[in-house]
């Protein structure tokens, strides 16, 4: 695969997916069948995204590096940056109809659905097999610090990592 094909593979995966890990199935299929990447590369790229800053979706930058070096990382970054620009067209269309009560009602309903989906994230993390009472305690502590005490998020995460080190090692 040449650089252009690598770029188009990442672009296609991003264009036909939503969210951070939505591009995983498409990339897995395209890159493993061509022996460009292994399952281990995918696991490693996702693990890296958990400890690095930025959107989780930037795991593809790590995958780009692991499969095609620094050029791969750059191509992956450019590829995932392009599809979200469609939001400008959507926003322009929305601004023409935003004052209609029906549109406001629809957006309000979707906003509430977003809240519900965030609760799903909370539930799915806390109901994981390796969480236990220690994980629930860390989650509650993070919530209390970030919400009630408005503690800086980096400090909250650093304290969570420290708690993990103390409780799990």
């Amino acid at each position: 695969m040449g650089p252009l094909e690598i770029f188009l593979t990442f672009l296609k995966a991003s264009l036909f997916s939503t969210g951070g890990l939505g591009s995983l199935p498409s990339l897995h299929q395209d890159l493993t069948t061509n022996n460009i990447a292994t399952d281990q590369d995918f696991g490693q790229a996702i693990a890296i995204s958990q400890v690095s800053p930025g959107p989780t979706g930037l795991w593809v930058v790590a995958l780009g590096y692991l499969t095609y070096g620094f050029l791969g990382a750059v191509l992956a970054l450019v590829a995932v940056t392009i599809p979200p620009f469609l939001v400008l067209a959507l926003s322009a269309g929305y601004s023409r109809i935003e004052h209609r009560p029906l549109v406001q009602g629809i957006i309000r309903g979707v906003s509430l659905a977003v809240v519900g989906l965030l609760l799903v994230v909370v539930w799915s993390v806390l109901s994981g097999p390796a969480i236990g009472w220690r994980g629930v305690a860390i989650a509650l502590g993070a919530f209390a610090l970030a919400y009630a005490a408005r503690v800086n998020i980096v400090i909250v995460l650093a304290l969570a990592a420290l708690s993990g080190f103390i409780l799990y090692s």
Binding site: V51, L119, A139, F143, A144, Y147, S169
Partner: peptide
């Protein structure tokens, strides 16, 4: 590994915020 185990549940708390 232990620090990552601590970070995962913290993301649940932050999602709740």
């Amino acid at each position: 590994q232990a620090m990552l185990k601590g970070l995962t549940p913290a993301t649940a708390g932050i999602s709740l915020v």
